[in-house]
């Protein structure tokens, strides 16, 4: 029932709420001071280059002109990129690369984490060995894998031919159809320890009583994993998968060093294609527009990441 006092109350409450936000900001001003140095660094190192890139994306940079004399073309760079066959091809590559790298890294990481969860003789040694791919320099690893895969003199080829299992060495990275899967293998090899460590931490927190309850309820080891352990790992898994996905989208070293995007653009992903356009072909405008598009896509992934991280907080607040 809206009485005079009722209305007045409502207005008071609204005023309190608005003041609330400003009031909150003021009472929390010390918090802002603490993050100010970091924000300043970010402005210089991240925000300004982003602004500059967006600005550059509306220009063309012909080889005969200095950069300061660049030509304004409006949205034309974006139109060119979105309508290009090559970009379409590279997009398909990127999706395949990211999806399979993420899925397999996660699966392998999960398997390793589960295997290492139970205590057994030599567990410490196994753990150390399994972390090595992640810790080794990516560049060094890329070169070594390149030689392992080498179409004429690689180790794999030598072993297979030596054992009589193949007539000649298999073609891993010099073939349009096998290059991307071969690189994905290297990427998964490199990345799964990260997933393994995240999930190992998560496994430590699975409630013992729940596993016992499931055992009493008649669940087999696999069912206990599926109904108790895995759902409990959902938070950690979400974060891990998102981090893996973002890292894979940006994964530059392995494809660039091993194949340079070849052969015939079969192993180009967005990030290497942008690099080639910018630094190999001096197409700064197009590369900038391309980067902006990549940035937007990664930002949306980042949004989901932040959401996943703060879902716990939201639950607490009763959201």
């Amino acid at each position: 029932m809206t009485t005079a006092t009722g209305l007045a109350d409502a207005r008071l409450r609204k005023k309190a709420k608005r003041e609330g936000i400003l009031q909150q900001a003021w009472t929390r001003r010390a918090d802002y001071l603490y993050v100010l140095p970091a924000i300043l660094v970010m402005l210089v190192v991240i925000a300004y280059p982003i602004y500059y890139t967006v600005d550059l994306s509306f220009f063309n940079t012909p080889p005969g002109l200095q950069l300061r004399d660049k030509v304004f073309v409006g949205l034309n760079n974006y139109v060119v990129i979105l309508g290009s066959d090559v970009v379409w091809r590279v997009t398909v590559n990127t999706v395949i690369w990211t999806f399979f790298s993420t899925v397999f890294s996660f699966a392998l990481g999960l398997g390793s984490a589960l295997a290492l969860h139970r205590d057994f003789a030599g567990r410490g040694v196994m753990r150390a060995i399994l972390i090595i791919p992640w810790v080794v320099s990516a560049v060094a690893a890329s070169y070594i894998w390149k030689w392992i895969y080498h179409s004429d003199f690689g180790v794999i080829g030598a072993v297979l031919v030596g054992l009589g299992l193949a007539a000649h060495p298999p073609n891993f990275i010099d073939s349009v159809s096998t290059v991307l899967p071969s690189l994905i293998v290297v990427n998964v090899w490199r990345e799964f320890p990260f997933a393994m460590i995240m999930l190992m931490a998560g496994l430590q927190t699975v409630p013992e009583q729940l596993l016992r309850a499931a055992k009493v309820d008649g669940a087999s080891a696999w069912q206990r994993f599926w109904h108790v352990t895995f759902p409990h790992l959902r938070g950690v898994s979400t974060v891990t998968i998102l981090l893996l996905a973002v890292s894979n989208f940006n994964s530059f070293i392995i494809p660039w060093i091993m194949t340079g995007g070849g052969p015939s653009n079969a192993s180009h992903i967005w990030i290497t294609h942008i690099y080639e356009l910018a630094f190999g072909r001096q197409r700064w405008g197009i590369a900038s527009a391309y980067s902006v598009l990549l940035f937007l896509i990664l930002m949306s992934l980042g949004y989901f990441y932040v959401r996943a991280l703060s879902s716990g907080d939201r639950k607490e607040r009763g959201a």
Binding site: P207, Q209, L210, R212, V216, H227, V228, P231, H232, R234
Partner: peptide, 12 residues
């Protein structure tokens, strides 16, 4: 059948 101190209900 067992009933636990922490209820041990499947949260999801």
């Amino acid at each position: 059948a067992m009933v636990f101190q922490n209820y041990a209900l499947y949260p999801q």
